[in-house]
């Protein structure tokens, strides 16, 4: 196997290798070795990097109970694919590896398919990383301890000179290669309307109130910078209007010109799915766009400093 070890930080290669060979564990699956072996050895040594990592894992834990972690030499992805179990919601969260890790080595199944796909309980990861909030160093490794684990090892800061080490073994399922095709980046649909989102906290408090009244929500927007959140029941109809939000320039000129700027595009969605998404957003993103495909799907595209998140909520039929 050709080595696909990648280093982003200027760390001496040989030293690192010899150190790691002793520590790296190859995940050997019990059934067939054909599945997906891989090694991963990651060090988050700068403590200021831990905080955003904790934030990301917290957000993921709020969005999905079980998610897929895709590890490739330069990116980490948290994936929720649109299975029926999750109500058709899908998520694609992307982290640039070098923004988080001071040292990063991974080796996938082969040089051509240099990726590792793991399924894990997101709460475990978030809990494990929460311990690391004031850590001296954090190491993440793929290990085999009777079953494949993502081992998070944290050296804590303590008042005394002594060292305290916390290790979390997060059980993972290594996803075989034949299933990788279901876990690729979703294509962004051609939207009817694309609009910038208002402050997410405001939106969240609005949707929270609405959830008490209805299970469904209509999200509608136009090219005039207007976004409405609407619920309708037999007794009451509540609409919250957001104005002057602005529309990002559309990719295809034709579509925007053909469309009346006043005309709304709307999607009926499950209000809980929207709330789940909003509740996961602790920090306001630098950019937040909502793309609506009329009566089909709503796509949220958030860009944080180190993380990008795409979230798809399908229309209720």
């Amino acid at each position: 196997m050709t080595s696909a070890v990648l280093k982003c930080c200027p760390v001496d290669v040989t030293v690192n290798r010899s150190l790691s060979t002793g520590k790296l564990h190859r995940v050997e699956l019990l059934l067939q070795t054909k599945l997906a072996p891989g090694t991963l050895d990651v060090l988050l040594s700068k403590s200021f990097l831990c905080a955003p990592a904790v934030g990301v894992s917290n957000m993921i834990a709020k969005l999905a109970k079980i998610c897929t972690l895709r590890i490739s030499p330069d990116k980490l992805n948290f994936i929720l694919s649109d299975k029926l179990a999750s109500g058709g919601v899908s998520m694609w969260c992307e982290l640039e590896q070098e923004n988080f890790f001071s040292e990063f080595q991974m080796e996938g199944i082969s040089a051509a398919n240099n990726e590792i796909y793991l399924e894990l309980t997101s709460e475990n990861l978030s809990r494990a990383l929460k311990t690391a909030q004031n850590a001296r160093a954090l190491k993440i490794k793929l290990t085999n301890k009777h079953y494949p684990c993502l081992t998070v090892s944290i050296e804590l800061l303590s008042v005394s000179s002594s060292s305290r080490i916390v290790t979390h073994d997060i059980p993972v399922k290594v996803i075989p290669r034949r299933l990788w095709k279901d876990l690729q980046e979703p294509t962004v649909p051609d939207s009817d309307v694309s609009i910038y989102l208002p402050v997410l906290k405001t939106m969240k408090s609005v949707v929270e109130k609405m959830k008490n009244i209805s299970n469904h929500l209509i999200i509608e927007a136009n090219l005039n910078g207007e976004l409405n959140l609407k619920i309708e029941t037999e007794l009451v109809c509540v609409t919250t209007h957001f104005k002057d939000l602005g529309n990002p320039p559309l990719a295809s000129e034709n579509a925007s010109q053909a469309r009346n700027p006043e005309q709304m595009a709307e999607v009926h969605i499950d209000i809980r799915k929207l709330l789940q998404f909003l509740a996961g957003q602790q920090a306001n993103p630098t950019k937040a766009v909502c793309n609506i495909v009329n009566n089909k799907i709503v796509h949220f595209d958030l860009l944080h400093e180190d993380v990008s998140l795409q979230y798809f909520i399908p229309a209720l039929s």
Partner: peptide, 18 residues
């Protein structure tokens, strides 16, 4: 418990000096 749903195993190691 190790049949289907595995729980996360956490270990804390503290030096004698504490």
């Amino acid at each position: 418990a190790d049949s289907t749903v595995k729980a996360m195993v956490t270990e804390m190691s503290i030096g004698e000096e504490d």
